[in-house]
Write a protein that binds this DNA or RNA. Structure first.
Lengths: 187, 187
DNA sequence: CCTACCGATCGGTAGG
DNA sequence: CCTACCGATCGGTAGG
């Protein structure tokens, strides 16, 4: 049963998300794929390369979600951003979680790039808050930077408590969270 | 320069918070204290015992903060809970961060106890939200469980972005965050 | 992708 | 608290 590089990255993402990067050994990763730890090096050059691949997948998914967000009004656009974020978490939980939690396990230069990617993503939220302040729909006395951090804090925590098979489906969560944020932002 | 058990736990908390439990070796911890890794075992029995001690400190600090929160109204009590949480983060950042982030590095039984402690803390937030719903100050259409998760998500993320020497001091952050939460909760 | 390793490092111990 | 270790495991390599 031959494995592709993509298979390796996929399973690595799952283990990094479940146990963390440092707690995942190459032998454990190999076992999960039905091969030896040393055999993984036919597909990759180093363990860190795996983390980079998973984290960059996460960065791409969030980046694409931000770029795809649309709305006629700042309120609608913020709702779209929130829904997009939750979709990434639902569809790519391992990459999302690793992107959000394991950057510090990368060396300085790579870690900086991830932080830059997260900042770029956060900028989409800041921008929509700024638009809402400018057009009078959002209040003036909360700066967009702080507001976007609050909203992203709630979004980023979702993967730690939310179970899609619970009482709230994904759309209901998106609506509840957007509503919470919008009530706090409206003037 | 002799070191006490408390010194060891203190510095371990700092390294666990900075690098994570698995990324902290006993030799690195010893170096930080001016001794060899093996010498640490004069003060402790195992590495995991250190994590338990740090995490339990965190649990105690948050538990005490919840117990100390007071307020004439649900609004005031929620503000007090928020301020207390931020005080714990400010005064005991390493224990707070390790308590919030490194529970999964503990074995099952200990991890369960930490999750129970976190749930007990969260219960203080659920209770005040329930009181506010009961007395008509908070809205009925957001259940206390979800509301408390949203508020705690914002609080728990604080240590990842907030710098007390920045433009917002601790009281300003408490006021801003409480205000955000209360606007979202009021009916 | 396996066999057979490598040096480094891990948490931890015995004895002083 | 150090010296001198232990077995286990780590990420990784050479050669097939």
């Amino acid at each position: 049963m031959s494995r592709s590089r993509q298979d390796v990255i996929e399973v690595a993402g799952r283990l990094f998300a479940e146990r963390g990067y440092h707690a995942t050994s190459m032998r454990a990763l190999g076992r999960e794929l039905g091969l030896l730890g040393s055999s993984l090096y036919a597909h990759i050059q180093s363990k860190e390369e795996l983390l980079v691949a998973v984290v960059e997948d996460g960065a791409r998914f969030f980046g694409a979600a931000a770029a795809a967000a649309v709305g006629d009004t700042p309120e609608a656009e913020l709702k779209s951003l929130v829904a997009g974020h939750l979709r990434v978490i639902a569809e790519h939980p391992n990459q999302a979680r690793t992107f959000l939690a394991e950057a510090r396990s990368l060396d300085q230069a790579l870690c900086d790039r991830i932080i830059a990617a997260r900042d770029h993503y956060e900028e989409a939220f800041r921008t929509v808050l700024r638009k809402g302040i400018a057009d009078g729909s959002f209040r003036v006395d909360l700066d967009p930077k702080t507001g976007s951090i609050f909203i992203l804090s709630m979004l980023n925590a979702v993967e730690r408590w939310y179970h899609p098979d619970g009482p709230m489906d994904q759309d209901a969560l998106a609506a509840t969270l957007s509503d919470f944020a919008l009530r706090a932002m409206r003037r």
